[in-house]
């Protein structure tokens, strides 16, 4: 993946995912010149957007003139493959997308959807950002986050474990300990 040939830059994909939601504000902002310029400056070559149920269509580009290559789709059954081949993931704040990305050890920027009525989702992103597992941004601050982020400083996330819950349930129900 991304072998440099004849001075061609190695392929570095930014994968943007909104899950099953509608998050046009995120799609719009990653399609903005400000963010695209910043991504290019940080050495990324491709921008792939999973736009879900949103209605805003980004401008496609094959990126042959040294600009960022942009492509998008609505849904796909192979999100995991896109995550795996990405060098940077920009995601909505859903716990499913967050943990799938962290488990793959990919650098992650979570963008919180401020239009949601019950905005408890920012809690999780902010907590994990405080623990240095990811960066947390708002649509209007995304370009600053990309400009100032230091991916080396992110700490790997060690996957959780459900056995403490299972133990407590077993003990409560009076099952003998194994």
């Amino acid at each position: 993946m991304g072998e440099a040939e004849d001075g061609v830059k190695p392929k570095r994909v930014v994968f943007v995912t909104v899950g099953t939601t509608c998050f046009d504000a995120l799609v719009k902002v990653v399609d903005s010149q400000k963010v695209k310029d910043e991504l290019l400056r940080r050495g990324y070559t491709h921008l792939l957007i999973q736009m879900g149920r949103g209605s805003y269509l980004p401008e496609k580009s094959i990126g042959d003139d040294g600009s960022l290559a942009v492509d998008y789709f609505t849904f796909s059954s192979s999100i995991a493959e896109h995550l795996r081949s990405a060098s940077l993931v920009i995601s909505h704040a859903g716990s499913g997308s967050i943990f799938e990305t962290l488990r793959l050890g990919k650098p992650l920027i979570v963008v919180v959807n401020e239009d949601l009525m019950d905005n408890h989702q920012s809690e999780l992103a902010e907590e994990l950002a405080e623990r240095k597992h990811l960066y947390c941004a708002r649509p209007q601050t995304l370009h600053q986050t990309i400009a100032s982020m230091d991916l080396e400083s992110l700490l790997p996330y060690s996957p959780g474990d459900a056995t403490p819950v299972a133990k407590l349930i077993n003990r409560f129900l009076g099952f003998p300990e194994d």
């Binding site: 859903g94 459900a162 056995t163 819950v165």
Partner: peptide, 15 residues
């Protein structure tokens, strides 16, 4: 969604 994913994780470790 995420709720089901967490429940499946729990079921995996229950006897």
């Amino acid at each position: 969604g995420g709720h089901t994913a967490e429940m499946i994780d729990l079921l995996l470790v229950l006897q």
